[in-house]
């Protein structure tokens, strides 16, 4: 029995039409359509394209979350073992749709999925961490080269074989860091690299320096006396006993807790969950990290109108930037919905 594969393509590659048909709603067809024929041939006897899902690029782009769920249901109905997306070459909306589907399929179905795109397709930057994307030419002229590479990688994934490096398999670097044991200790590798750099010989860094998001601060608040201020911390302050078990490091969650009725945090009611600093003084007086006492005084003095009755907390210690970003976005939405005007962020 061969593996069941579903193929996703846009309205153009389905032969329905160009830009004028880009609002085409999702539909399914049995078997192969368009480039599916070549892909199916490349898969050989081991796997077969049992169905094709088609969607117009504009339709997909107009509401990506909704369409992605819609297309996912159509794919799921074929009971696939794996999914092929595109290739999308340098078509931006098509690439983004393929990437979004790759992300949804990886997360929701947990089955192998491979796409193909030109490296500058915006879908690459958005989704390369979610799926394997074979590097292709910028137009359909590259179909001949893309098809065998996509099929080969998909078969490897289906059979659980070890996937090689990007250059070996032809996929675009995903930006995922994987551990391995090297031949020599890290100290020796570092001295080797140092010698090469000193001599002006070529060397390859083991970790290219990251480029960070920089966020410009919002303009200052004009009417402080009428504003509501919230406290948010990465210093791990939480109700005593850490009821939600926020991790000491590499936090997977944040907590939302009421400070209604608290004028002062003490060791009797709060503590820190943070594992990256000496907790003695934070546990002794949690206000040192989450300054509820001072905020209450200022509230009484009328420096601002109100201290928000909830605070948000997590542990910044070794926590992945992706998790921190997610927590931040969620917390910001909640604060905004609660009418908070300003936030004091405390770290450790």
């Amino acid at each position: 029995m061969s593996y069941r594969v579903v193929h996703y393509i846009n309205q153009f590659f389905a032969g329905i039409g160009g830009e004028e048909k880009a609002d085409y709603a999702p539909e399914t067809r049995e078997g192969v359509v368009g480039p599916g024929m070549a892909l199916n041939a490349a898969l050989g006897n081991e796997a077969e394209i049992v169905g094709t899902v088609i969607c117009g690029d504009t339709y997909f782009a107009s509401d990506m979350a909704k369409t992605s769920a819609e297309v996912l249901e159509l794919i799921r109905k074929f009971e696939p073992d794996a999914v092929l997306l595109g290739p999308a070459f340098n078509a931006g909306r098509y690439g983004s749709a393929c990437g979004a589907m790759g992300d949804a399929i990886s997360k929701e179905l947990g089955i192998p999925v491979v796409s193909g795109m030109f490296p500058e397709n915006p879908g690459v930057e958005m989704y390369r961490k979610s799926l394997y994307i074979i590097e292709t030419a910028d137009s359909a002229r590259g179909m001949g080269k893309a098809v065998p590479a996509m099929a080969k990688l998909l078969l490897k994934l289906l059979k659980g074989e070890k996937v090689g490096l990007p250059a070996e398999e032809g996929y675009i670097e995903r930006g995922l860091r994987i551990n391995k044991f090297f031949e020599t200790m890290a100290s020796e590798r570092c001295v080797d690299m140092f010698v090469k750099k000193l001599k002006g010989e070529p060397f390859e860094t083991e970790y290219p320096m990251p480029v960070f998001d920089r966020v410009d601060p919002n303009p200052p608040i004009v009417d402080m006396a009428n504003s509501t201020v919230a406290l948010v911390t990465s210093g791990g302050i939480c109700p005593k006993g850490n009821p939600d078990h926020i991790e000491a490091s590499s936090a997977s969650k944040y907590g939302e807790y009421s400070i209604e009725g608290f004028d002062d945090l003490t060791s009797a009611d709060h503590c820190t969950a943070h594992g990256g600093y000496d907790a003695t003084y934070a546990d002794d007086d949690p206000d040192r990290v989450l300054p509820v006492d001072v905020m209450r005084e200022m509230e009484k003095e009328g420096v601002f109108k109100k201290l928000h009755n909830k605070f948000y907390t997590t542990v910044g210690n070794g926590t992945a930037v992706a998790s921190a970003k997610k927590f931040g976005a969620e917390i910001a939405l909640k604060l905004k919905a609660d009418g908070v005007d300003a936030v004091i962020l405390t770290s450790t």
Binding site: C190, F194, Y207, V211, F212, A320, A322, S323
Partner: peptide, 28 residues
């Protein structure tokens, strides 16, 4: 030349260091 380690998240998808500079081009 720099000798450090990484906190790239459990999936390896996040940036590994909390600070960076272009001069750090030889990093183990």
């Amino acid at each position: 030349a720099l000798l450090t380690d990484e906190y790239a998240g459990q999936d390896g998808a996040s940036q590994s260091l909390a600070d960076s500079c272009p001069e750090g081009d030889a990093c183990v």
